[in-house]
């Protein structure tokens, strides 16, 4: 399933609801669906504001695929510079007011089972988010 939205704040909520519906039908537990929603909103907001500079003519593409083990969501913008991901486990520290930036990426890393970022030659920056269907099955290598 693929969704394409304009880079206008507000549409990330529609994507969130679409993917939540998808995740629910895939059989992800309700608490994990909440994580998917949070992560997706952060990733889409980043793509809209930072990747595409809130230019409504630039698109954000969200692609969802599933297999037996996991739900994979790719969020791609038309920007060029992939941000650097914080390491896992995320170190939460209280930040002074002027440097609150980067909190979104920390949330994304903390709540997803796997995250990677790559510069895609056709789309721009793509962040790939993986959620395991059964988190207790733990680490699976594919």
């Amino acid at each position: 399933m693929q969704l394409i939205i304009p880079s206008v704040l507000g549409y990330e909520v529609v994507v969130r609801d679409a993917v939540a519906s998808f995740a629910q039908r895939y059989g992800l537990p309700p608490d994990r669906i909440e994580d998917v929603k949070t992560v997706l909103c952060e990733a889409c907001t980043n793509a809209i504001e930072h990747g595409n500079g809130s230019d409504p003519h630039r698109r954000v593409r969200v692609c969802c695929t599933v297999d037996e083990q996991s739900l994979v969501i790719a969020v791609c913008d038309e920007g060029e510079l992939p941000p650097t991901l914080p390491g896992k486990p995320v170190e939460w520290c209280s930040m002074p007011y002027p440097s609150r930036r980067g909190l979104g990426l920390k949330l994304i890393v903390a709540l997803s089972d796997e995250v990677s970022i790559a510069a895609d030659p056709t789309f721009g920056t793509c962040i790939r988010l993986v959620f395991y269907r059964d988190p207790r099955s733990g680490i699976h290598t594919s």
Partner: peptide, 22 residues
């Protein structure tokens, strides 16, 4: 403004289109 959805032709995906439009 335009939102585009591409769905595979498998029953069940109509539900996702319904939820998204709603």
């Amino acid at each position: 403004q335009i939102i585009e959805m591409r769905l595979p032709s498998r029953l069940g995906y109509e539900r996702i289109a319904m939820d998204t439009a709603a």
